[in-house]
Amino acid sequence: MNKNSEIVLHVEDLGVSFGGLEAIAKIDISVARGEFIAILGPSGCGKSTLLNVLSGLLPPTRGTVSVEGRPMYRPESEAPHVGYVFQEHRLLPWRTVKQNLELVLASSKVPQDRWDDNIDNILETLHISRYKDSWPLRLSGGERQRVSIARALLVEPAYVMMDEPFSTLDELTARTLRQELIEIWQRTGTTIVFVTHSIREATFLADRIVILTRGPALVDDSYTVPIDRPRTYEDPRIGQIEAEIVERVLSVWEPEKK
């Protein structure tokens, strides 16, 4: 684990079952402050369930989740402020970009006198200042996803979860957004938990890649990406590491073929 040693998110012996069906068998993960981790897993392995647990939506059947040292899902514990970027933007279409951002700020700890400045700064960083008063339906898919990222970062979250946020965008837009995400992450030092199917995307973005087994999910491997930043898609090491991870992933997802 790199970055500083302060653990923001600690998951221990996590298990989730729905009736008799086990969705997550056992997961242990620790994420350091400012770390960018990618979670790789096949469809149906329990990634969404894991994100629901980490976002405060679904209490686990077993185990503990601690955020900044405080356990979640205890009667006395306050839900942590987290950001979430969904696969689809999930903006409220009847509120302008600014109003969407103000809505989440209203329930955050950010003082109201800083809202305008923070909104202006984040929109400028994401190159969408001119859309501040626009309706979401008038924006392109990439612009909407930028607003969704702005929303997640604005609440000064303990960590931001991203659930395949660029999977519905065209490759050129997705590449631009990945690059911008890295720049914002480096500038703000936000902790990011990024779920993806794409090994190349995980390799390009993350400090560390966590590989989940086919359901019920287990953390089968954790791989630190040994490439300095800034990274480029043209870097031959990305391709080499991608091939290496493919090997590892296949051995985890399809062990019988090995």
Binding site: S55, V82, Y84, R90, L92, L103, S107, S108
Partner: peptide, 16 residues
């Protein structure tokens, strides 16, 4: 219900 998840994650009050 997808929007309900947004409300829950960002801890939007019941009235909001």
């Amino acid at each position: 219900h997808k929007l309900d998840d947004v409300a829950k994650i960002y801890r939007v009050s019941t009235w909001c």
